[in-house]
């Protein structure tokens, strides 16, 4: 799936919890939230307006 990064919801280095929305992607007029699957400190690897594909790294939680 090809999508645009519509919105980066969390700040770089923010502490997030399992279930938090990190980034919202947009493809074909649909919003697709990228949700944290763990607790930790987040590093965002994309910027708003970027085009991402399946397999691209969007964020890292440590």
């Amino acid at each position: 799936m090809v999508a645009n990064v519509w919105k980066v919801v969390v700040a770089e280095g923010e502490t997030v919890s399992d279930g938090d929305t990190l980034v919202i992607l947009e493809s074909m007029k649909m919003e697709i939230p990228v949700i944290a699957e763990d607790d930790g400190v987040v590093a965002i690897k994309v910027a708003e307006g970027d085009v991402v594909q399946e397999g691209d790294l969007i964020a890292v939680i440590e």
Binding site: M1, V2, A3, S27, M28, M30, I32
Partner: peptide
């Protein structure tokens, strides 16, 4: 629609 038939996520 250009979307998968299970979760209905876009698939251009």
């Amino acid at each position: 629609y250009a979307e998968d038939p299970k979760r209905f996520l876009p698939g251009p």
